[in-house]
């Protein structure tokens, strides 16, 4: 399967099952597409007629295409479906936990998927004892994995900061004893982000996510406190001080865009103007009936924004002022292996969320939905039927993905998004698929336009 598309003068051909990417001129662009379904002789005749090239030229191009086909870099067959059938089931070891250290929040964002941090339940704070047991549970069930991930999440984790610090100390002690490497991460709304938190994070946190929606009026539409006051003026100075001290360690300025700001590129530009260079801007995760939900009618605008974002990234790269956009990060030469591309995030199998009282859920987006409780850190995963369902959820588990060129980039997508859109983790969130495909097209275009590779002539 191939996917051909054009971006700002680039003709791009993606070969789905080999992972190969080709930049081609307009003659080859047509011939590669035609050759998928037509015999060589017919392709040659069509190319001569449409492009006015000589027969010899067209034959030479077909020979080049045949060489790529022989090398397995064009029209490569699918050799991986059998890997998807039992990969996860054979390897169910846990390597990541999302610790819900606080089911409470000091902001009252109406679009919050976690219902203002309470996850449709009561306010709660994780005790040190529960967190400690969660770390033990992770290490006990990690098997061959050396690298383990623990994310402090909420709600607002800084509302339980002392426990976070104690758990990091405990994790550091345990990783030495068990020959593990624990990467701690934190997501915060910034209200309580002070010098002490900054110093600790710069020492211990592998990555820190800072929530800001961009422009002041956009951020303060939803990200308000319980008195209804916007958070922008309080959090931006905290974030700027944090990033100034962060050095070369990872952070992400992470925004949410909704139906109200489909012109989200302006929010990205605002983040850049504030001095932030590691950026992420995500479509809102909410009930489709919510007024803030993205609609089908929004998609053309959103696609245009993603294209303009790609152009801005190339422009700033050429000016020596590059920035990172989470979704456009692709490592073409040393990227994920086929197993990772098939299996995705590992929710419900190698990645689990832990509530403040120690219950286990497939991921943070399922917390609070009793039907998805999998067990606890004390008794382990009891709902093995549910675990097996998540283990089978991958790039090959949905018939709708069969002919999708992007499935080995999205790994079948997000189980929670599928569940919320269709009622089934093996369903399809079509709008999410449309957005994902556009982002991958733009991400690859950015890579090619900043690669320094000479583009083919246009014949």
């Amino acid at each position: 399967m191939i996917h051909c598309y054009q971006f700002d003068g680039l003709n791009i051909v993606l070969d789905c099952y080999s992972g190969s990417i080709h930049m081609v001129d307009k003659v080859a662009y047509d011939m590669i597409r035609w050759y998928e379904n037509l015999p060589a002789e017919e392709v040659i005749s069509k190319a001569v007629e449409k492009h006015g090239i000589s027969r010899e030229d067209a034959e030479e191009c077909i020979a080049d295409i045949d060489d790529l086909k022989t090398a397995g870099k064009l029209y490569a067959p699918d050799k991986y479906e059998h890997l998807a059938k039992d990969f996860r089931k054979k390897n169910i070891k846990i390597k990541a936990l999302c610790l819900h250290v606080a089911h409470t929040c000091n902001l009252n964002c109406s679009y919050c998927f976690a219902s203002q941090g309470k996850y449709h339940g009561e306010r709660a704070i994780m005790s040190y004892e529960v967190g400690k047991r969660a770390i033990d549970f992770l290490i006990e069930n990690s098997g061959f994995h050396k690298n383990l991930d623990i994310d402090f999440f909420g709600g607002e984790p800084l509302m339980n900061w002392d426990v976070c610090k104690q758990l990091v100390a405990y994790g550091r002690e345990q990783e030495k004893l068990h020959n593990k490497n624990i990467r701690f991460t934190l997501t915060t709304n910034g209200i309580l982000l002070d010098d002490e938190v900054t110093e600790f994070c710069n020492k211990e946190m592998h990555n820190v996510v800072l929530s800001l929606d961009g422009r002041k009026e956009v951020n303060d539409r939803f990200r308000v406190d319980y008195a209804g006051h916007g958070s922008y003026d309080r959090i931006v100075p905290n974030f700027q001080k944090f990033v100034a001290k962060r050095g070369d360690k990872s952070y992400y300025m992470r925004g949410t865009f909704t139906h109200y700001n489909t012109d989200f590129l302006n929010d990205i530009k605002q983040m850049l103007d504030l001095g932030f260079n590691e950026l992420s801007m995500e479509p809102v995760v909410t009930d489709p009936s919510s007024p803030s939900a993205i609609t089908k009618e929004d998609l053309p605008v959103i696609f245009g924004q993603y294209e303009d974002l790609a152009r801005l990234m190339v422009e700033r790269y050429n000016e020596g002022r590059p920035f990172t956009f989470y979704h456009y990060m692709l490592d073409l030469t040393c990227g994920p292996c086929i197993y990772k591309r098939i299996a995705g995030c590992g929710s419900g199998t190698e990645y689990l969320a832990v509530t403040p009282w120690g219950d286990l859920y497939p991921c943070h987006q399922f917390v609070g939905d009793e039907a998805y409780r999998m067990g606890s850190i004390y008794e382990g995963v009891l709902n093995t039927e549910l675990r097996d369902k998540f283990a089978s959820c991958n790039a090959y588990s949905r018939p709708e993905c069969k002919d999708c060129w992007a499935k080995l980039y999205c790994s079948g997508g997000c189980a929670a998004n599928s569940y919320h859109a269709s009622g089934d983790i093996n369903g399809v969130y079509e709008m999410g698929c449309d957005i994902f495909r556009k982002r991958i097209e733009c991400a690859i275009a950015v890579k090619l336009l900043t690669s320094g590779l000479e583009q083919p002539g246009n014949g």
Partner: peptide, 29 residues
């Protein structure tokens, strides 16, 4: 005339990579 430029990409299981949702670890050691 060069009509096709093939970009270098990885030729398509240790599990040591970071969980991704909220680089390959082996090849980037």
């Amino acid at each position: 005339m060069t009509r096709i430029v093939t970009v270098e990409t990885r030729d398509l299981g240790c599990g040591e990579c970071q969980t991704s949702c909220k680089a390959c670890e082996q090849l980037n050691k």
